[in-house]
C-alpha cells in the first residue's frame, strides 16, 4: 500500500522566547492509502494544528508535508487550492457551511470551483446515504446541528477526494448522532477507498480506527 500523507520533522511554533508555544514539534508521520487514523490528545495538545498542516490550511514553521508523493511547500497558492479541492475533503467541528447557499450547492461547491460538471447521480447517492435527500433546497440555518454536519461531510466527499480530514466531526453533536456521523464517514471511506484522518476526544470513535495517534505537547507519543 502506498503512503498518501507524510510529514518530515514538521514543526509549528507560535510566539517567541518565553512565550514560545510548540503546537507541533518535530512530527514524523506516515499514513497509508485507505487507512482510518484517529488522532487523540488533550485540549491544546496540537491535534487541530497538525490536521490543518496536513491539509495545507496552515504554513509550518519548519519541516515538510508530502501529499501523494509531493511536497506541498513546492506548490504555488493556486496549485495548493487545486489540491485541496481535488484531493482533500475537510470536515470542521463548526460545520462551516456557506450560509447563502442551499444544501445541494454547499455539497457541490468544491466540484463547481474545479470547473467540473457535477456528477448528479453520485451527489444524490451521497445525500441519500446521509439522509439529506429531502433537504437539498434548504439553507443551512434551517438545519439541525446533525444535519449541518452531515452536509459538511457530504461536501467533503462529493469531489471524491483521496483524503478526508475531519476535526472533531462529532464534537457538536449528541452521542447518537455522533456515532451515526462516524459510521457514515467510515462507510464512505470504505466505499470510495478514501483515507480518513479524524481528530476526536471520543474513546469509542478512536477505537473504531485502524490506528490511533496520541499527541502531547505537539509531539507524537504513541
Amino acid at each position: 500500500m502506498k503512503t498518501i500523507l507524510e510529514t518530515k520533522e514538521l514543526c509549528k511554533y507560535y510566539g517567541s522566547d518565553e512565550n514560545l508555544v510548540k503546537a507541533v514539534d518535530h512530527v514524523n508521520l506516515k499514513i497509508m492509502q485507505g487507512e482510518f487514523v484517529s488522532i487523540v490528545g488533550k485540549s491544546g495538545s496540537g491535534k487541530s494544528t497538525l490536521l490543518h498542516l496536513l491539509g495545507g490550511l496552515d504554513n509550518p514553521t519548519s519541516g515538510e508535508v508530502w501529499v501523494d508523493g509531493k511536497n506541498i511547500a513546492d506548490f504555488s497558492k493556486e496549485q495548493l487550492a487545486v489540491t485541496r479541492r481535488r484531493q482533500i475533503g475537510f470536515v470542521f467541528q463548526a460545520f462551516n457551511l456557506v450560509s447563502s447557499l442551499n444544501v445541494w450547492e454547499n455539497v457541490v461547491l468544491p466540484v463547481g470551483l474545479d470547473g467540473k460538471k457535477v456528477d448528479e447521480g453520485f451527489v444524490k447517492d451521497i445525500l441519500r446515504t446521509l439522509g439529506l435527500e429531502k433537504k437539498e433546497k434548504n439553507l443551512p440555518n434551517t438545519l439541525s446541528g446533525g444535519q449541518q454536519q452531515r452536509t459538511a461531510i457530504a461536501r467533503a466527499i462529493a469531489a471524491k477526494p483521496s483524503i478526508v480530514l475531519a476535526d472533531e466531526p462529532t464534537g457538536n453533536l449528541d452521542t447518537g448522532t455522533g456515532d451515526e456521523v462516524i459510521a457514515l464517514l467510515k462507510l464512505s471511506a470504505k466505499k470510495y477507498g478514501q483515507t480518513l484522518v479524524v481528530i476526536t476526544h471520543n474513546e469509542d470513535i478512536a477505537q473504531m480506527a485502524d490506528r490511533t495517534i496520541v499527541i502531547e505537547d505537539g509531539k507524537i507519543v504513541m
Partner: peptide, 18 residues
C-alpha cells in the same frame, strides 16, 4: 428565507450573486 432554489452547478459568479 428558509429555502433557496439554487443551481445544480455552482460557479464563482453564482457564489457572488447568492
Amino acid at each position: 428565507r428558509k429555502m433557496r432554489k439554487g443551481n445544480k452547478n455552482v460557479n464563482v459568479f453564482r457564489l457572488s450573486a447568492a
